[in-house]
Amino acid sequence: MNRFITAGAGLALIATPLVATTATASDTTAERKVAYSVTAKINKTMAIADEDVVKIRGKVSPKAVGDKVVLQQRMDGKKKWAVSGKAKIKANGTFLLKDEPSTAGTRFYRVLKPAAGSIKKGVSQELELVVYGWEKLG
């Protein structure tokens, strides 16, 4: 009978550190943040300055109803992104952003969903737009 009690106590001591280790591993997994997934599509690849309006439609996952997404753009050859507009995310997770380019040149757009709560920010792929402008010939 003493052997049974000793063996049982030995198992209890071994099992306790395993439970603590498992809890620590799941705590680390719980701390990892998930990022927003942002997809975006542009309705044109070419536009005329001061004449055309560009529409960028997309979707955010996980859904963040009522939160805002930010349209950013940068000119070709530049590194800095500038804010071009903002829009609210609809109940189905979609959004619509518009921009009316005013200068000729190639530019790139992207959509940013800022971090919220335990979810990290998400950024769409870059969308290229070539903008042409009118010039006087004479």
Rank of each mutant, 00 (worst) to 15 (best):
M1I: 12
N2S: 12
N2M: 07
R3K: 13
R3Y: 14
A7N: 12
A7P: 09
G8D: 12
G8F: 03
A9P: 03
A9E: 11
I14K: 01
A15L: 14
T16H: 06
P17D: 09
V19L: 13
V19T: 11
V19R: 03
A20N: 05
T22W: 12
T22Q: 13
T24C: 10
T24V: 14
S26F: 14
S26W: 13
T29I: 13
A30V: 04
E31A: 11
R32Y: 13
K33Q: 15
Y36M: 00
I42M: 05
I42K: 00
K44H: 11
K44A: 11
T45F: 06
M46R: 09
A47G: 02
I48F: 15
I48H: 14
E51V: 09
E51Y: 08
D52C: 00
D52M: 00
V53N: 05
V54H: 02
K55S: 13
I56W: 00
I56R: 00
R57S: 08
K59I: 03
K59Q: 09
K59W: 05
K59P: 04
S61G: 08
S61C: 04
K63H: 10
V65R: 10
G66L: 12
D67H: 15
V69R: 02
L71I: 02
Q72P: 00
Q72Y: 01
Q73I: 10
R74E: 01
R74T: 01
D76C: 12
D76N: 15
G77I: 08
K78D: 14
K79N: 07
V83E: 02
V83L: 04
K86M: 09
A87Y: 03
A87S: 12
A87H: 04
I89L: 07
I89Q: 03
I89K: 00
A91T: 09
A91L: 07
N92W: 06
G93I: 05
T94M: 03
L97G: 05
L97P: 03
D99I: 04
E100N: 07
S102Y: 07
T103K: 08
T103S: 11
T106F: 03
T106M: 07
R107L: 15
R107P: 00
Y109V: 04
R110Q: 14
V111A: 02
L112Q: 09
K113M: 13
P114Q: 07
P114V: 01
A115T: 05
A116R: 09
A116E: 06
S118I: 10
S118Y: 05
I119P: 01
K121C: 02
G122N: 08
Q125D: 14
E126C: 08
E126H: 09
L127C: 06
E128G: 10
V131R: 00
Y132A: 14
W134M: 11
E135P: 09
